[in-house]
């Protein structure tokens, strides 16, 4: 089944019961990840990170340091993967690409008047084209939450489809900013709109709004991806972003991906973490798992 080209082809979204979701999520959290499974999981987490800086005060210097870290997570330890991508504003794409491009690390750029999305479509298209032309491999767009909450689903759908068109070969991640959608029913509906309108990935949040990537929200979005796969056979990626700052939470996200979607999604082609401080906690856990000794932040570089 091809992607719908208008919202008229969108199937109705099932309702979501939050209490039931919370119970399911508690079950994921009760999974005990130990020994080799933990080590394998932690390395997987590292490989799935979109190392991110999205601040008004971002400078070339800050971006340069982060990009270096992306390719040198902890050089003292052998066989660590690189992160999947660095995620920056469009103005920093060219710089980032010049540093990480040669390491097989992607450059992702936010666009569409991130983080609010409150700009006309032409501005958003220009923003996106600029990022793509500067070398972005991935585009992280935001949906128009105001329009969504006003019930203008067709507007949201068409906007995503239009952005997808100008992405070219860059993969499109669609940020729902779930903290502003409030209910899981809305999260599910927005996920379906994004997927059917052409998203390659759906993503929880910008990191600017709390709550961000709660397990409940991520679970709801994973179910949307699962249903789409069951309907069409096409895989969609998932990126929780914002609030995942420790290894344990990251591992529980992987548990969810494994149990809801399956092993095929345990790959940075299909699953990412948007995070700025997760990598160091994962590194510390890797060292701890390896040595049995609890670690200090002083021994892991900040960037």
């Amino acid at each position: 089944m091809p992607k719908a080209n208008t919202i008229n082809h969108l199937p109705s979204s099932p309702s979501v019961d939050k209490v039931g979701v919370e119970e399911r999520v508690a079950r994921f959290q009760s999974r005990s990840i130990k020994n080799h499974a933990k080590m394998q999981g932690l390395k997987m987490v590292l490989s799935m990170i979109d190392l991110t800086t999205l601040e008004g005060k971002d400078t070339p210097g800050k971006v340069r340091q982060m990009c270096f870290k992306a390719a040198h997570l902890h050089d003292g330890y052998p066989d660590l993967p690189n992160v999947a991508a660095v995620c920056v504003y469009p103005s920093m794409v060219r710089l980032a690409k010049s540093i990480v491009g040669s390491h097989g690390i992607n450059v992702a750029s936010v666009s569409t008047a991130f983080p609010s999305g409150q700009a006309p479509l032409e501005v958003k298209l220009t923003d996106t084209k600029y990022a793509v032309e500067n070398g972005a491999d991935e585009i992280d767009m935001v949906i128009s939450r105001g329009k969504f909450l006003a019930g203008e689903y067709a507007f949201v759908f068409d906007e995503i489809a239009a952005i997808k068109e100008v992405c070219g070969s860059a993969r499109l991640k669609v940020i729902l900013e779930t903290g502003e959608l409030i209910t899981l029913d809305n999260v599910r509906k927005a996920s379906d709109i994004a997927i059917y309108a052409g998203a390659d990935f759906i993503k929880t949040s910008t990191g600017k709004i709390q709550p961000a990537a709660t397990l409940q929200v991520t679970y709801t979005m994973l179910q949307a991806i699962r249903d789409y796969y069951d309907e069409t056979g096409q895989m969609i990626g998932m990126k929780p972003a914002g609030g995942i700052s420790n290894a344990k939470l990251a591992l529980h996200n992987l548990v969810m991906v494994k149990e809801v979607l399956g092993q095929e999604w345990l790959d940075n082609k299909w699953f990412r973490f948007g995070a700025s401080s997760l990598a160091n906690d994962v590194l510390m856990q890797i060292m701890k798992t390896d040595s049995g000794i609890y670690q200090s932040g002083d021994y892991f570089t900040l960037d």
Partner: peptide, 12 residues
């Protein structure tokens, strides 16, 4: 005696 359960959704 019949006992009925239903979830209460707490949001925000």
């Amino acid at each position: 005696l019949k006992t009925t359960w239903h979830p209460i959704e707490k949001i925000g």
